[in-house]
Design a protein around this nucleic acid. Structure first.
Lengths: 234, 234
DNA sequence: ACTGATACGAGAACAGTGTTCGCATTTATC
DNA sequence: GATAAATGCGAACACTGTTCTCGTATCAGT
């Protein structure tokens, strides 16, 4: 039995401070500019001392990725939970808008999660997957909610959708069939594509006002998921 | 009048060799792993000597970005030009598939162009824009080709599409109206989103076979651009 | 309470990076 | 041929991630 435990407590405190200052650094200079020495400096510790808590820069990145995924997951899940369960279209819009909100508020974190991966570093799947699939899992569950899916246009009926079964398994909806799966994936990739276009400024310089493009992506996703509807997007 | 010109010729050769080995390095280790010293090493020159040809690492990146944009532009333009002008849907499919092909063949270059931007570095617009807008300009011209656009669903009719007029101007189609503009932008961002999802492995690990998702994105883009059609995508 | 083990922080050191500066040497111009 | 400009190189500076050693502080067992 440990009695005092000042050692464990201090270890926890340093771990927390480490993650906190690393997050601050990430938000300021981005993932590629993140420096172990700078983090140590701001913590008032020697750089070598940090290696008692992390195995190296890669693990620091992994920590930040998982933390960002969870932060995003909290934000999106909370927004989705605030919408009445019966309003499936509203729940989709809540997911999309909160995802967009979080991304605009945390651009460097978004780049870390959905931008080009950091070279020479491959995130360990066993640590990032649980947090990384939270929002897609939420979306998948929403896509399965409608018991009678709307008739979808012919181009969504692809012959070999069985290739994507692994993705349905990963999102906890093994019974999702081809058309629904394709629709959900397209809604998701469209959303990510629109946000990336906006944040990474891929459409040229004067892109301050891309709200309209994002609204269109949300509307397209809604149509993909739940079919046509008379009402215009908010 | 210059007579011999061995100086100019050598300068051209070194410039070419510099770009060539930088490209090789980029293809192997990616943008963030690109090292000026490594390039100098492979060229058999001192690192400091390279600064006679580039102002720094940033300009090397700019060079690579412009080169990659042009390589992509050549590839896509050639593929699009090989399709009969009357077959607008086929031309869209050629653009999308050749874009996908090039991206899979040059993942690091794709990440440089359409992934998260390199931190502390902002590409000078006056140098990257001409090459960077080639494929979107091609797409915009294609979107304007159909004199009688198909009736589009209500969710594509957004009230304040005028915000995006700058984008139409940048793509050399100032007369493009709201619905067409939105449709084209959605087709484009969906395409980029699908390719990014595949290349950056954002949908989990076992994503070898995402051809179906990409095919669906192409079909969705075709529908956005030219409306419904009985035929299934190839 | 004392001892042996263990965890911890610091400092020096190594290899690597981007970049600058001064000095030779080669080329171009008059 | 003399003068000016362009070029390559080596040393140096300020960084980076990481490893190793070495005291010291805390723990566990008696």
């Amino acid at each position: 039995m440990r009695t005092s435990g000042t050692r464990e407590r201090r270890r926890g405190e340093v771990n927390a401070a480490l993650l906190a200052t690393a997050k601050k650094e990430l938000a300021q200079v981005g993932a590629a500019g993140l420096s172990v020495r700078a983090v140590a400096r701001e913590m008032g510790m020697a750089p070598s001392a940090l290696f008692r808590y992390i195995s190296g820069r890669d693990e620091l990145l992994t920590l930040l990725i998982v933390d960002a995924y969870d932060d995003l997951g909290d934000h999106v899940e909370a927004a989705e939970a605030a919408v009445p369960r019966s309003d499936v279209r509203g729940r989709w819009r809540a997911i999309a808008t909160s995802f967009h909100e979080w991304s605009v508020a945390n651009p460097h974190e978004y780049a870390l999660l959905y931008g080009s991966p950091v070279p020479q570093y491959h995130a360990p799947a066993d640590r990032t997957t649980p947090s990384g699939t939270r929002v897609t899992t939420l979306l998948a569950a929403l896509g399965m909610e409608d018991p009678t899916p709307p008739p979808r246009p012919a181009f969504l009926h692809l012959p070999d959708a069985s290739q994507l079964r692994d993705l349905a398994l990963a999102a906890d909806v093994p019974e999702m069939e081809g058309e629904r799966l394709i629709s959900g994936l397209l809604a998701w990739t469209t959303l990510v594509g629109a946000v990336s276009s906006e944040l990474f400024e891929q459409l040229g310089e004067p892109v301050a006002r891309l709200d309209t493009l994002f609204a269109a992506a949300v509307a397209l996703g809604e149509w993909l998921l739940f079919g046509a509807d008379g009402r215009l997007p908010a």
